Simulated assay, not measured.
Amino acid sequence: MYILVAPDKFRGSLEATEVCQSVTEGIRLAFPDAKIVSTPLADGGEGTTRILTEGSNGKFVSAVVHDPLGRYIEAEYGLSGDGNTAFIEMAAASGLNLLKPEERNPFLTNTFGTGELILHAVNSGVKKIILGIGGSATTDAGIGMAAALGFEFLDENEQNVNPNGENLSSIKNIKTENVNPLIKPVEFIVACDVTNPLYGEFGAAYIYGPQKGADQVMVAKLDMGLKNISDIATKTFGKNISGNPGAGAAGGLGAGALWFLNAKLREGVSIVMEQTNIAEHIQKADLVITGEGKVDDQTLQGKVVKGLADLCQKNNVPLAVVCGTLMITPEEAQNAGITYAVSVLNRPMDLQQAEKEAFSLVCDATFHLVRLFFNKSRK
């Protein structure tokens, strides 16, 4: 029996590689002779760079860049084994996790450090950059990133403006003459699971600004600034992409990637599955086991589990899901293409206890599901 183990992380308790180890132990207990292939997955957010780098037998590279408030930090990105592709998470340089709660201020923060990481990778000779844009501390529409690459943003007096959220409304012109020429031939693919437009009621400022430290007044000003940069960029680049799904991702970095990098926005889970050749493994598998901390409505809208379910259905391979919290109905599981779904909790316990025992809980649950599947398949 060929079993593919392809989970996401259990946030707060197990990384995806640890879930793989736990599931593998459970399989071995139930079926020692099984052929097991483990491929940890991610949905394009936190942890994606590590998975893609390790999956390509690559290495990690460090660079000194600026954090969201302009302080020097050391940030890391991945380089594929063949040296042709860089895997960058914008959160490594421009993430909310880099700031103390009292430092959060999308008027002042920018994505300059993300641009510096891109430059560092480009200077190493990469041909493609896969950029994850989750977890941002910014609402600058990517102008900080663009400034690091050589774009210039001028006010009505033709003076350079500091590229941050507060100054979006002051920009009247974008100069492209000094953009680093090494950027143009590089292919940019952005992992983006957010469908918000750039501005407006459901845009970057109104939906995500408050969690980045913006009050109601700031949100309104940021939204006006996003509308302004959209108008200026549309004139400069000849394309209005502010309403594109994902333009509002990461404080408008989705739109910035389209304008300044000529990038393509794609679902993060699709990118990860493509880079890890997961479809080839599924075609050979008798059973696929996946999992994540919580399986709910969001899971069925573009997460790892849904991506696997679609591929498993296409190849007529059963998919089993182990999770901490199971919040979908049997009908929803069936409609999504999930063959078997189970919570690993085997008795009443609080979150702290569940996280502490996560490894053994996943292992035990896997043992039972594999025994069930194997006994059924032998008849």
Results as ranks from 00 to 15, higher is better:
residue 4 L to T: 09
residue 10 F to M: 08
residue 13 S to M: 06
residue 14 L to H: 05
residue 14 L to F: 00
residue 19 V to R: 01
residue 19 V to N: 04
residue 23 V to N: 06
residue 25 E to M: 07
residue 26 G to N: 10
residue 29 L to E: 14
residue 31 F to K: 09
residue 31 F to A: 13
residue 35 K to Q: 14
residue 37 V to A: 08
residue 38 S to R: 08
residue 39 T to D: 00
residue 46 E to N: 10
residue 51 I to H: 08
residue 52 L to F: 00
residue 52 L to E: 05
residue 53 T to Y: 12
residue 56 S to T: 07
residue 71 R to N: 15
residue 72 Y to L: 13
residue 73 I to P: 11
residue 76 E to A: 00
residue 82 D to W: 04
residue 85 T to W: 03
residue 90 M to T: 12
residue 96 L to T: 07
residue 99 L to G: 08
residue 100 K to Q: 13
residue 105 N to K: 11
residue 113 G to L: 13
residue 121 A to M: 12
residue 121 A to Y: 13
residue 122 V to Y: 04
residue 130 I to C: 01
residue 133 I to E: 02
residue 143 I to Q: 08
residue 144 G to S: 10
residue 145 M to P: 07
residue 148 A to T: 13
residue 148 A to M: 12
residue 155 D to C: 03
residue 157 N to Y: 10
residue 165 G to Y: 00
residue 169 S to M: 04
residue 171 I to E: 12
residue 173 N to H: 14
residue 174 I to T: 00
residue 174 I to F: 03
residue 177 E to D: 14
residue 179 V to P: 12
residue 184 K to L: 04
residue 187 E to Y: 02
residue 189 I to D: 00
residue 189 I to M: 05
residue 198 L to M: 11
residue 198 L to Y: 03
residue 200 G to M: 06
residue 201 E to S: 05
residue 202 F to H: 15
residue 202 F to N: 15
residue 205 A to Q: 05
residue 207 I to R: 14
residue 212 K to T: 08
residue 215 D to E: 11
residue 229 I to M: 01
residue 229 I to V: 02
residue 230 S to W: 00
residue 231 D to V: 04
residue 236 T to R: 11
residue 241 I to C: 14
residue 244 N to Q: 07
residue 258 L to D: 04
residue 258 L to Q: 15
residue 261 L to D: 11
residue 265 L to V: 00
residue 269 V to C: 12
residue 271 I to S: 01
residue 275 Q to L: 05
residue 283 Q to S: 13
residue 284 K to F: 00
residue 295 V to L: 11
residue 298 Q to R: 12
residue 300 L to V: 07
residue 301 Q to H: 15
residue 303 K to T: 04
residue 304 V to N: 01
residue 305 V to A: 00
residue 309 A to M: 08
residue 311 L to F: 08
residue 311 L to W: 02
residue 311 L to H: 09
residue 315 N to M: 06
residue 316 N to V: 00
residue 317 V to D: 04
residue 335 N to Q: 15
residue 340 Y to M: 02
residue 342 V to P: 03
residue 343 S to C: 08
residue 343 S to L: 09
residue 344 V to D: 03
residue 348 P to G: 11
residue 351 L to T: 14
residue 355 E to F: 10
residue 377 S to R: 15
residue 379 K to M: 06
